[in-house]
Design a protein around this nucleic acid. Structure first.
Length: 1022
RNA sequence: GGGCGGUUAGCUCAGCUGGUAGAGCGCUUCGUUUACACCGAAGAUGUCGGGGGUUCGAAUCCCUCACCGCCCACCA
């Protein structure tokens, strides 16, 4: 055997062997009837896996390997996610970077083909990475969210929910991403605090009306009284003023009571076509904020939309899909002018009619931010900005510090009455931190937009999902995440599932025309009128079915003739198809579904649903979901909703284990832009998969949010592997190997009895830790047992025995060591599968690979006497070593040991373990005597003293100091315990065993102190 | 504004249901004795964030404050 494990060579070889032998297949190594199933959180096919994936998959693999060894019918279901928007973004970026035709230039079909190429490439990378990591997924079942089977499941779910009324189309305000030109869900919006401004503008009252504006302080005294011909509003988004439908004030706000119900003018655009909007009351405005009056822009603000809904205020969409002001000007808003124009016909030119559309000519096509500047400029130039003194504390706008577009001096500055120079009054612009919504992928500011979208009635689906966690059917580990889950589900909003993208599952809805017939139409198809203003939806899992539905629907219009149903590419071609054809053209909804819609089905779609497959029957519900907290809402909650709904109320998993987020050595979130990402493949290349896995597992603490990952921790993992490797090397050199059965060997020597017990203890500990998903504890238990117990002590103890004369003892020790080592390999295998498998195969010829070995369950094989005896031996050796080091006894020098105060037990212990003790403590002789030899150094060990005659080397002063220190410690301890035992309250209230323990400790401390005192006295006599 | 984590040895962190403060790394001193220098032996280092409380007893339970971090939230 080499001195170290060659991970680079061995790991791929071992993995290939496992794979070739079908070790990962569902049910492999099954020895019991119950199943254990984990579905992988499918990685996005956007690129490669990061260290967070490495953690997530290591934890899953640990559980899966462990359960498989326990004999469960185990399946780890692998797969990847098409990740709609993210993948489309990756491909679009790549097209741009390589100067290839853009998405639009390619067209939908070509582009989607191109994304499939990306999928193939990325999937290959990802699966390769998972294999390098050692993941024991059943690759024969590898899935993809857009595979034919899973797509069928998606369509069925959509159609079923549609038919149940749980999916519907609605015109609602949604989060619109102007970069990707699609709607996104609430969850895909990140609210980030940014520097913003709030402008204060005057909306003049219609017809020059005036009112007395009165402000009062808390005591009711008037602090301001003036006649106003306007209402002052504050806004952070002046460009949306054009879409205002009203100005709202709080019903209790006395300042504006006189003008509620009146009209005011939006001060933007050509004066002759400015819109008048009503001043209304609503509970939404906060009288203490701003001016207390809020402009209501129902189509571009969620709060305003609420007000608009309540007050029946019109909503005007101002922008196009890119967030630019509508080039078409939008709808007519001046109904009177429009009517006049129609009546007048030729009296008004097309341009003139155009001029009264909602977006004025000079703003059309402008980006929303450019439009904002123009609007501000226009209002300010007109003198309708609220002006304040330049030294007003709330005015942050100052020369040289304002945003560039505001610093151009566009504001009309009214000179001060005292005649001083300079801008004494300024437009009121408050600098303000505002929460701005950004697209989580696009990183651009999200625009609330009024559009037609598909929604899932999440509220209905959420109720059973809530109940399942409330009643413990599904549990979170750690449990505190349940609160997060509840908070979100309890206040869940309709889920917008349609995306205006190309990569994804296309909405299974086909639209037909809205037919209007007159009396004769049923016999004369030529007289049917149609349009697509209100298209008729046909929701079905295929065009064929949709066409059948359509045929039924439209047949009434065609008399006895069955209308022919055509599939058109889009609405435009559908309209074209109709001309001159005796039939109906349908076109499919071009939108695709939110990627999480298909991910939500993952636990059952991957098992074959909607077919009733044996796998579905066998493995659903699955057992544990291992995932990060960042997708509890996106994914976990939605799997719960869909799983319960479609699987007869059965939850998708009984446990959700929330793993940590991996951060760098400084605690910073890893990101490509920071350049602090740890590539799992690089770590594996450098240190091996086992080392990487160990580092991750040993630092995964349940309930902790972050896991700091560094090369140093992986080094530790590698060192541990090497340690194990060398222990095995020692065993091999000493022929302490053989393919034993699984039965525990017979032991007669205390040291062998002891290691059997230690092994059983470690096994129980690792099993318990894994049962509780305490990965760090499992890893640490393995580490301590392998390194500190097996290597540091047992191997050392075994050396004199294996090199001794007693053949029977030799044989027994070999057997025990071989067995104990095998158990180490078994225990460690889930965490470090490669090195353990390699050793398993190297040490002996075996029928099964280690990964199919049986996870042991030992009864009471620990021997209390052996434990006590070896504990004593270890303490003795440590004590001697410690003294030797302190007394500077040369390492090579062999000294003598004389035990005093030893009873039969201690004498017997010494006799039984003399070889080990003498060797490890480097003793010449060891014996029991009545009195300590002259000039001895004394170590107190409970009831007896270990005396080392070091007359030649002893430094009396140093030894006195050492003993005094030990004495002080013992006396301090004794004192503390005495105090405790003298406390009446303690004696009365503490449990008996605790009191007993304290008494034992006291007597031990007292006896130790006595022996130390005796040793000091002897020393004083020298 | 609400919620959730964290604050323990120089560094990174364990410490589960209250009962003798631990590990890894780093540091110091030894050391090549039939596995291992990716090693072995021996060491040093802690008012367990501050303040209160409950208790016979608190790193651990409760309250409160401070700081760091995350998540959710509609103040124009």
């Amino acid at each position: 055997m080499d001195k170290t494990f060659n991970a680079e060579e061995a790991e791929p070889r071992i993995y290939a062997k496992w794979e070739d032998e079908g070790c990962f297949a569902a049910g492999a190594n099954k020895s019991r009837d119950d199943a254990f199933c984990i579905v992988i959180p499918p990685p996005n096919v956007t690129g490669s896996l990061h260290i967070g994936h490495a953690l997530n998959n290591t934890l899953q693999d640990i559980l899966v390997r462990w359960k498989r060894m326990q004999g469960f019918d185990t399946l780890w279901q692998p797969g990847t996610d098409h990740a709609g928007i993210a993948t489309q973004m990756v491909v679009e970026r790549e097209l741009a970077e390589t100067q290839q035709p853009s998405r639009a230039a390619m067209g939908r079909e070509k582009f989607v083909e191109r994304v499939w190429e990306q999928k193939e490439k990325s999937e290959g990378t990802i699966l390769g990475q998972l294999k390098r990591l050692g993941c024991s997924c059943d690759w024969s079942r590898n899935e993809f969210t857009m595979s034919p089977n899973l797509s069928a499941a998606v369509l069925k779910v959509f159609v079923d929910l549609y038919n149940q009324g749980l999916i519907y189309k609605d015109k609602r305000l949604v989060n619109w991403d102007p970069k990707f030109e699609t709607a996104i869900s609430d969850l895909e919006v990140e609210n980030i605090e940014t520097d913003g401004h709030m402008w204060h503008f005057k909306y003049p009252l219609a017809g020059g009306a005036t009112y007395e504006y009165v402000e009062k302080d808390e005591g009711g005294d008037v602090t301001l009284l003036e006649t106003r011909d306007y209402i002052s509003i504050a806004t952070t988004r002046p460009e949306t003023m054009l879409g205002d439908g009203a100005v709202a004030v709080h019903p209790s706000d006395e300042r504006y009571a006189p003008i509620v119900g009146q009209l005011c003018e939006i001060p933007v655009g050509p004066k002759e076509h400015r819109r008048l909007i009503p001043i209304i009351t609503d509970d939404y405005p906060d009288p203490d904020f701003g001016s207390g009056a809020v402009k209501i822009t129902g189509a571009h603000d969620f709060n305003d939309n609420g007000v608009a809904q309540r007050g029946n205020i019109p909503c005007y969409r101002l922008m196009d899909t890119k967030g630019a002001m509508r080039a078409d000007g939008g709808p007519y808003v001046d109904e009177a002018a429009k009517a006049q124009a129609i009546i007048d016909g030729a009296e008004m030119t097309a341009n003139e009619i155009d001029a009264i559309n909602i977006v004025p000519d000079d703003l059309r096509g402008l980006d929303r931010y450019e439009a904002r500047k123009r609007v501000i400029d226009q209002i300010t130039a007109e003198g309708l900005a609220v002006m304040v003194p330049a030294d007003h504390p709330e005015v942050a706008w100052m020369k040289g510090t304002a945003p560039e577009w505001n610093a151009l001096g566009r504001a009309k500055i009214t000179p001060l009455e005292d005649g001083t120079d300079g801008p004494a009054v300024l437009p009121m612009v408050e600098s303000k931190k505002i929460m701005q919504p950004f697209g989580d992928r696009s990183k651009v500011v999200i625009e609330p937009m009024l559009t037609d979208q598909w929604f899932v009635d999440a509220k209905t689906l959420a109720q059973p999902a809530l109940e399942a966690v409330r009643n413990g059917t599904t549990k979170f580990a750690p449990q505190n995440w349940e609160k997060t889950y509840f908070n979100w589900l309890e206040d869940i909003q309709p889920w917008c599932i349609s995306r205006q993208l190309w990569w994804g599952h296309q909405v299974p809805v086909w639209y037909g025309p809205d037919l209007i017939t007159d009396d004769d139409a049923s016999t004369n198809a030529d007289r049917i009128e149609w349009d697509f203003k209100q298209p008729v939806p046909f929701c079905a899992t295929s065009f064929k079915e949709a066409a059948a539905d359509a045929r039924r629907y439209y047949s009434g219009y065609f008399g006895n003739a069955q209308p022919k149903i055509f599939l058109a590419e889009d609405q435009t071609s559908a309209e074209a198809e109709h001309r001159g054809v005796r039939g109906i053209a349908l076109y499919r909804d071009p939108d695709v579904l939110d990627t999480w819609f298909s991910s939500a089905l993952w636990p059952f779609s991957t098992l074959g649903w909607p077919d009733k497959t044996p796998e579905l029957d066998r493995y659903y519900k699955t057992d544990v979901l291992v995932t990060g907290f960042d997708i509890i809402f996106f994914w976990v909650a939605r799997m719960m909703m869909q799983g319960i709904h479609f699987m007869d109320g059965e939850v998708p998993f009984h446990t959700v284990y929330i793993n940590s987020i991996v951060v760098d050595g400084k605690g910073q979130k890893m990101s490509k832009s920071k350049g602090n990402v740890l590539d799992p493949l690089e770590l594996i290349d450098q240190y091996g998969a086992d080392a990487t896995r160990y580092a991750l597992a040993s630092q995964e603490v349940q309930g902790r949010r972050t896991l700091r990952m560094s090369n140093q921790s992986v080094e530790g993992g590698r060192n541990f592997g090497t340690k194990l490797w060398n222990a095995a090397r020692f065993a091999e050199m000493n022929e302490a190997y053989s393919a034993h059965g699984e039965s525990v060997p017979e032991a007669t020597a205390t040291v062998n009895k002891w290691i059997l017990g230690e092994t059983a203890r470690a096994t129980a500990e690792v099993t318990r830790a894994l049962d509780e998903y305490r990965f760090n504890e499992a890893a640490t238990a393995c580490y301590d047992h392998v390194w500190k117990v097996f290597c540091d002590w047992y191997v050392e103890f075994a050396k004199p025995l294996l090199g001794g004369e007693d053949e029977a003892l030799k044989t027994e020790t070999r057997a025990c060591m071989a067995w104990a080592l095998d158990q180490c390999l078994i225990l460690l295998h889930p965490i470090m599968p490669f090195v353990t498998e390699e050793l398993w195969g190297t040490l002996a010829q075996r029928q099964n690979p280690l990964m199919h070995a049986t996870w042991p369950e030992f009864g009471a094989i620990a021997d209390a006497d052996a434990d006590a005896e070896m504990g004593w031996v270890i303490k003795l050796i440590e004590g001697i070593r410690s003294v030797r080091a302190e007394m500077n006894v040369p390492a090579g020098a062999k000294i003598d040991l004389v035990l005093t105060g030893a009873g039969d037990t201690v004498s017997a212990r010494l006799d039984r373990n003399r070889a080990l003790i003498e060797r490890l403590a480097r003793l010449e002789t060891s014996a029991v005597a009545d009195a300590a030899p002259e000039g001895s150094v004394t170590i107190v060990l409970g009831d007896c003293s270990a005396n080392l005659p070091l007359a030649g080397v002893i430094d009396v002063t140093a030894e006195k100091a050492r003993l005094s220190k030990a004495l002080a410690k013992a006396e301090k301890e004794a004192g503390g315990i005495e105090k405790k035992l003298g406390n009446q309250g303690f004696l009365e209230k503490a449990p008996e065993e605790v009191i007993e323990e304290q008494r034992d400790r006291l007597s031990a401390a007292q006896s130790e102190a006595a022996r130390l005192n005796a040793a000091l006295e002897r020393l004083a006599a020298m």
